[in-house]
Amino acid sequence: MTFSLVGRCAETGMFGVAITTSSIAVASRCPWARAGVGAVATQNVTDPRLGNQGLDLLEKGMSAPEAMNALMAKAHSPEHRQVTMIDAKGRTAFWSGAKTLGTNNVAPGEDCVGAGNLLQNPDVPAVMAKVFAQSKGRHLADRLLLGLEAGIVAGGEMGPVHSAGLLVVHEQSWPLVDLRIDWSDDNPIVRLKRLWEDYQPQMDAYITRALDPNAAPSYGVPGDMGDEK
């Protein structure tokens, strides 16, 4: 019911996940990332516990393949799970259990790994990974969204998708980008891209407000004394 792209920017050290599905609120349970550590996507019949558990193993110093083996060895009902992972060195790992739904596939690429289930065709993950690799030099969020869009063009899911999410972490303990479309009868990826385009110009200001409020720009809303500066 889902396809996703997990990626890393080798230049900035950012990690992120872009994901979409036919179900509601996919971003609330499937994408996981931790600054300086890596990123995980857990999908198909989702067990959200696997996200933080996988990141904990990476943070202990395991490579992505080592962490995936340890994670799935203890996972509940692993035959139902589809999980992808990338570590701080760009190494990837993946798992697709025997009961992963419909046409499914996984495609590791340079600093990324794409995966999906209930797909129109098995080429979707490889197309996403290829587009991600071709978009070096752009912000990681842009690259992830470009890959997700390419997945739709390549066939996407068997049915329409209704929710999508974009998660990117960088230097702080909280996400740099955490955007989602929890339900849309139209293409949620288009709406997610517009949301990212609106958010990006304000993104750094929210970091400054957290770390150094006195140097932060105003919110520019009625009643904000800073808007007089």
Rank of each mutant, 00 (worst) to 15 (best):
C9Q: 09
V131C: 08
G156H: 00
N44D: 07
V37Q: 08
M62W: 15
P78I: 04
A129C: 08
K229R: 08
D123W: 00
N69A: 15
V161K: 03
D142E: 15
A126F: 02
V177Y: 04
D227P: 00
I86C: 12
P213T: 03
T2M: 03
F3C: 00
A129S: 12
R91M: 15
V83C: 09
T100N: 09
K60L: 10
K136A: 13
D185E: 09
G38I: 03
V153K: 11
R49Q: 12
G147E: 09
S184L: 04
D178L: 03
L71C: 15
E197N: 05
M203D: 02
A154S: 06
W196G: 04
T42W: 11
R138P: 00
V190C: 06
N214K: 13
K99L: 05
V17Y: 09
I86W: 12
P175E: 02
P213D: 01
D212K: 07
E79T: 03
H80Q: 01
R143W: 10
N69G: 14
D182L: 01
D142T: 15
M158N: 09
S135V: 06
M85N: 11
V161W: 03
A141F: 13
D123G: 00
W95Q: 10
R29C: 07
E149M: 13
S96C: 11
P201K: 06
T20V: 03
Q200I: 09
T21L: 07
C9G: 12
A93V: 14
Y206K: 05
L144A: 11
E149W: 06
D224Y: 01
A70E: 15
K130R: 13
I152R: 03
S77M: 08
L179Y: 05
T2F: 04
L145P: 13
T42S: 14
L119N: 00
A18D: 05
Q43L: 12
K74R: 13
C30A: 12
D111I: 05
V124F: 00
H162N: 10
L5G: 11
Q172A: 07
Q134M: 08
W183S: 03
K130Y: 05
T46D: 00
A216Q: 04
I181L: 06
V113C: 11
G165K: 11
A215T: 08
D198T: 02
F3L: 01
A27P: 02
D142V: 13
A133C: 09
R29G: 01
C112N: 14
P188Y: 05
D182V: 02
R209D: 04
F15L: 04
A10M: 14
V127W: 01
E197T: 04
L55Q: 10
M72F: 11
K60C: 07
